[in-house]
């Protein structure tokens, strides 16, 4: 019960955070908090199998799926605070409150009596007991859900597939296009700059140095630059100096 009273406020706070988070990634992580807390509550309630499955399947697979899609769709993408539909926010909060209060009050009125507990059901261990019921009584539903999963996977493949509508450009075409771009727009003809002779790192956030010692902007991801997590050139210079002088 202690676990419950600790975790319950955490979960509610995380859920509310999910409601108010600006960036989708933050929302996903807060959802992860909620899910893991739920897993603990399952464990507390004599459901060790579900505890494991919750963490592995829900948090580990489903939530990761969410994160992948957020990555594909755009990490930058964020909700604006301004509500476009007039009066919708107020109405939603009001209705939500009414709904919630009704639900909570209704539930609170019910006297459930003392819980019977799962000691008897779990007498052989939770997992064998679950397996026993699952593969006897619910085997048909089990098979159907497996079919469902297969269908879902296939569906996802079909939906995400992109048909190539134009022929794939060959190496020669790509090269010709590159020269054309240089002629018309002055785009740099060669590949992106490598780390360089004096490069100490080939990390993503380390810019390549140009001959005159300045950082090459093209060698750094735009996103990292936007985040401001790029290492600066003077730092690198210090690094090099320490190394070369240290060698002697």
């Amino acid at each position: 019960m202690v676990a419950f009273w600790i975790l319950a406020p955490v979960m509610v706070a995380a859920a509310l955070g999910l409601l108010f988070a600006r960036k989708a990634v933050h929302a996903a992580l807060l959802l992860a908090v909620v899910m893991i807390s739920l897993a603990v509550l399952y464990a507390v309630q004599d459901a060790p199998f579900l505890f494991a499955v919750q963490i592995i399947v829900y948090t580990g697979a489903i939530l990761m799926l969410f994160l992948f899609v957020i990555m594909l769709v755009g990490v930058d993408a964020s909700d604006s605070i301004v509500e476009t539909i007039r009066g919708h926010r107020a109405a939603s909060i009001l209705v939500g409150l009414v709904f919630g209060l009704t639900l909570v009050l209704g539930v609170a009125q019910v006297s459930f009596g003392a819980p019977l507990g799962l000691d008897e059901a779990n007498s052989e261990g939770n997992i064998p007991a679950v397996a026993k019921i699952l593969f006897t009584r619910y085997v048909f539903a089990f098979e159907i859900t497996s079919a469902l999963l297969i269908t879902a996977a296939l569906g996802a493949m079909v939906l995400a597939h992109r048909e190539r509508l134009t022929p794939k450009p060959t190496q020669a075409q790509l090269a010709a296009q590159r020269v054309r771009d240089y002629a018309e727009h002055g785009k740099h003809l060669g590949p992106l700059p490598p780390p360089g002779v004096f490069a100490r790192h080939n990390a993503v956030d380390t810019p390549a140095l140009l001959p005159d010692g300045t950082a090459a902007e093209a060698s750094i991801s735009r996103v990292l630059a936007a985040r401001g997590t790029v290492k600066s050139a003077p730092e690198l210079a210090e690094d090099v100096k320490a190394l070369t002088e240290g060698d002697d």
């Binding site: 919750q54 879902a152 996802a156």
Partner: peptide
């Protein structure tokens, strides 16, 4: 949980 997984996919 299983169905939720399929649904999310």
């Amino acid at each position: 949980m299983v169905v939720a997984a399929a649904e999310v996919v």
